[in-house]
Design a protein around this nucleic acid. Structure first.
Lengths: 236, 236
DNA sequence: GCTTGTATGTCGGGGTGCCGACACAGCGAA
DNA sequence: TTCGCTGTGTCGGCACCCCGACATACAAGC
């Protein structure tokens, strides 16, 4: 398997549900021209409006997908972690990037350049379906987001986000139960101020479902948290 | 061209940018098994959680894509009008419908059943890319939505929505300049109460950029409206 | 140790969007 | 015409979220 990646890196990539769903041959072919890209914490990978240059997957660290308003407000769309892919929206239409991508920590990425993707896709047009699955998967996540922020109260939005993050976006089999993120960033994800986030979290803590630490939130009882959400939403 | 559609109906379908971008042969093939579906105003076409059954296009009338919270709150994701397609999210993953689809008026639809789509896609896997383009197009719209509601003030969100609707989602070449929708529904799209929507609209009216009617909003000066948005957003 | 920087906990004030309420206007049906 | 329905215009009170401010706590570096 001619590739620029180490055994371990390939193992990480293959642990992702989506990549693993591809047949073995396709997996190998895609990785032929894949390059490792290491970026330091805080570095910008790409910015909104830049040209599409291919797909990325996170091997280690995490990437924050954000957008900034003219007045300087920042909103976090998502935080991409270990075996996940991103940057596929522009794959189909070739248009510009919609968001900024920033490394949260020192981060290692795999990059498949667009010229190579195009080449492979000419040989294997059925692969379009697989990339489409990747896209539709994200679409569903994003639609849930929209619905939440439109229909649910702040506390419920926050709690839902905690549960999502604790499940590691559905791919980590182990339950980390620890969410490593400052409260302010949580706020940017659910459109709440840091203070409000803190207030709600403290309430959860008083109810015994989470424990708060510096830069970290520990989920103690995700089932009770679920129930709290339900009650919240019904009386809204 | 063996088809169940009338000449006029086919003409409407072909006036859509996306469908028209397909090569002529593919267009014909897709329409072979297309069926016309007429539904009365207020009828539900499908509901969240139902099985995927294929793609739809609006010929006449309009379809409201909504979701309802447990407490009964309703949010409007989009209103699909004349030459537009919808229902393609589930095409890739085969999962359930994410939203309810309701006819706003007496509506005529084209339906391509899923079994036939699958058949065509086996012969023409490159078509996956085209459906992916459709999906990514919607993804971009949805992402803009998210950003707006997270970062911009209510007045700006409302104004943006007015401009989008006046452009007919970018496909009507003519400028209708008339938006036929009650203020309450506008509110459901931008997460504002009817009263707040009214207040903002009246302000726009005083500034001379719109005129309000019963169930209708007339855009008088879309450029000035644009400027108002900018100013709004910068001082938020 | 001390210092610096970053994250958390908490308070009070101010703005603003939501809600209930009510009047009224346009429009179709009896 | 007179209902009745639906959409609009408007007001006041209330809740709640944001923001500024400040104290505190933890972590890393010198």
């Amino acid at each position: 398997m001619p590739s620029n990646l180490t055994e371990d890196q390939i193992k990480v990539i293959k642990s992702g549900i989506w990549f693993n769903s591809l047949d073995a041959e396709t997996q190998d072919i895609l990785l032929i021209e894949a390059k490792i890209k290491s970026i330091e914490s805080g570095t910008r990978l790409f910015a909104r409006g830049e040209a599409y240059d291919g797909l990325y997957a996170v091997i280690k660290g995490s990437v924050r997908i954000t957008s900034v308003s003219p007045s300087g407000k920042e909103g976090i769309l998502a935080i991409i972690e270990s075996p996940h892919w991103f940057g596929e929206i522009a794959l189909f239409d070739g248009l510009e990037r919609t968001h900024d991508a920033l490394a949260e920590l020192d981060t290692i990425l795999v990059h498949i350049p667009s010229w190579y993707l195009e080449k492979v896709l000419i040989d294997k047009p059925k692969l379009w379906k697989d990339f489409g699955r990747l896209l539709s998967q994200k679409m569903r996540v994003v639609l849930v987001n929209i619905e939440e922020s439109a229909l649910f109260p702040p506390s419920s939005r926050l709690a839902r986000r905690l549960l999502i993050m604790s499940r590691g976006y559905g791919e980590h089999s182990a339950n980390p139960l620890d969410i490593c993120i400052p409260q302010e960033q949580l706020g940017m994800m659910v459109s709440l101020s840091r203070q409000t986030v803190n207030q709600i979290l403290r309430q959860f803590e008083r109810q015994g479902v989470v424990r708060l630490h510096r830069g970290r939130i520990e989920i103690l009882d995700s089932e009770r948290l679920q129930k709290i959400i339900q009650i919240d939403e019904e009386n809204y």
